[in-house]
């Protein structure tokens, strides 16, 4: 990709960052919905199953999956989509891969299991520091 393309897309980028979230996290996506001339916010709660960087950052997107009335529903948004107001992390998930497409084949409890182990970013940073101390 040509470096000058960034100068074109800069104005289209998100002004305030969406907030940190990772694959495996359960998130609330606050989506602006237009009904006639009224605007309201709809929240879509689900598991982040993929984050894609696209060709350039402007094309980056993420996919959230949830089960609605027994039916799997996935929604994909570009990170810079102006219709998303914010993304809130409800629960961190412990996952071992970047794309959780294997969840698609699962039903019931199996879709949930993976995200039990909650982790605390501060605690983790501490552990990393300790490990570094030991080495050094």
């Amino acid at each position: 990709m040509h470096p000058l393309l960034d100068t074109v897309t800069r104005a289209s980028r998100r002004k305030e960052p969406l907030g940190e979230f990772r694959v495996g996290d359960t998130v609330d996506v606050h989506c602006r919905i237009k009904e006639g001339d009224k605007e309201r916010i709809q929240i879509f709660t689900g598991t982040v199953i993929a984050k894609k960087r696209g060709h350039g950052a402007i094309n980056a997107s993420f996919t959230v999956r949830r089960i609605v009335a027994g039916e799997g529903v996935e929604r994909t948004w570009p990170i810079d989509c102006p219709r998303i107001a914010k993304v809130e992390v409800v629960r961190h998930g412990r996952v071992r891969r970047a794309k959780l497409y294997y969840l698609r084949g699962r039903v019931g409890k199996a879709t949930k299991v993976k995200e039990l182990l909650e982790h605390n970013p501060a605690e983790k940073a501490e552990a990393v520091e300790k490990a570094a101390d030991k080495k050094g």
Binding site: M1, H2, L4, L5, V8, T9, A11, S12, R32, H55, G56, I58, N59, P78, D80, C81, P82, R83
Partner: peptide, 21 residues
């Protein structure tokens, strides 16, 4: 022709081609 990307025009994503003259 430098390549294609996208920009947002209001709420709409627009596919665009960037040309350097």
């Amino acid at each position: 022709k430098l390549g294609m990307t996208r920009v947002y025009d209001g709420e709409e994503a627009v596919p665009v081609t960037v040309i350097q003259c």
